[in-house]
């Protein structure tokens, strides 16, 4: 790993390109990587469940590393030790007895129980107790314990909707942001997602989770940040969603309780003013009411499909 911490020297990349037989020393250099310290592990873990992924990944790696090293050792040893010697014959061993069959199946089952077993067990536990253990939506009627956010993905941006003062979605006082996702530190956050156009996938690498946003249906995702997670992070779109897919990033800010109160309070106030103005306007022009276009949102689904 240490070796890899340096960008390959320019002559090496040039040499490799020359090797392809198509780099005819055209004289232009190869742009070397911007000098950012390299990283080989996932970005900072900021969610209370993120360590479950990290530790399970490491556990599996250690388990299969044993198998892999053993396999490679046998391969290399055999290549050297069992090279053909003139006049010698291999052992005439077919391994076709019942005993051999039982042995190899038993060994395979042992590997299954020893490696896949723990993996299945932990994965089951983490999914049921944590990653997919959604806060009970029926009991949520305010955002004090669980912050609810509606997410609308589109080519190539993220829209976020908070309920606003009235605690109801798809009303005039909703707080709506574009590519700007803010959550209070330490609070559970429950998202309902859908897409306006193609399939996207909301990926929060710092929380070790992602969920597809499908047009025509609502999916959900939840996480809770650790108490020391205040900071700026990013949302990625993980699902191919068109030629600008790789640009579909959004800002993801974890705010301290104070920052949150300030931001949310101010936003809610602006939204409310706007809603009041809107209501007044609609009172005078009833014929325009149906035309409002602030409503990409939906009434919060208290019983989502899954």
């Amino acid at each position: 790993m240490r070796l890899l911490k340096f960008a390959p020297p320019a002559y090496l990349t040039k040499y490799a390109a020359w090797l392809t037989g198509i780099y005819l020393a055209f004289g232009h250099g190869i742009v070397s990587a911007e000098q950012v310290p390299a990283r080989y592990t996932p970005p900072t873990d900021i969610s209370v469940d993120g360590h479950l992924f990290d530790s399970l990944f490491i556990l599996v790696t250690w388990m299969i590393l044993g198998l892999f090293v053993a396999m490679t050792a046998i391969l290399i040893y055999s290549m050297i030790a069992f090279r053909q010697k003139p006049g010698k014959r291999a052992v005439y061993e077919k391994g076709d007895s019942k005993k051999d069959a039982v042995k190899s199946v038993a060994f395979a089952i042992a590997i299954f129980l020893g490696v896949d077993g723990p993996l299945l067990g932990f994965s089951h536990r983490d999914v049921i107790d944590n990653f997919w253990n959604f806060p009970n939506t029926k009991e949520i009627d305010n955002d004090k314990d669980v912050l609810r956010v509606e997410v609308l993905a589109q080519q190539w941006a993220w829209n976020f909707r908070y309920a606003g003062k009235d605690g109801k979605f798809n009303t005039a006082d909703d707080i709506v942001t574009l590519n700007d996702f803010r959550v209070p530190v330490g609070r559970k956050v429950l998202l309902q997602l859908t897409s306006k156009d193609v399939i996207h996938s909301m990926f929060l690498p710092n929380c070790r989770i992602k969920r597809d946003a499908n047009p025509g249906e609502i999916t959900r995702m939840w996480f809770q940040t650790k108490n020391d997670a205040v900071g700026d992070y990013q949302i990625a779109c993980a699902q191919m969603c068109g030629y600008a897919h790789y640009l579909m990033q959004g800002s993801f800010k974890v705010l301290s309780e104070q920052q949150w109160t300030d931001w949310y309070g101010e936003s809610a106030r602006i939204s409310e003013n706007w809603a009041t103005a809107q209501n007044e306007f609609e009172g005078k022009h009833a014929e325009l009411k149906a035309r409002n276009n602030y409503s990409w949102g939906w009434e919060w689904k208290s019983q989502p499909p899954q």
């Binding site: 996932p42 992924f53 599996v60 994965s123 999914v127 993980a238």
Partner: peptide, 11 residues
């Protein structure tokens, strides 16, 4: 395994 795939999927 689901718990690891949720992060690794589409990477």
């Amino acid at each position: 395994s689901i718990a690891t795939d949720l992060y690794l999927h589409d990477t």
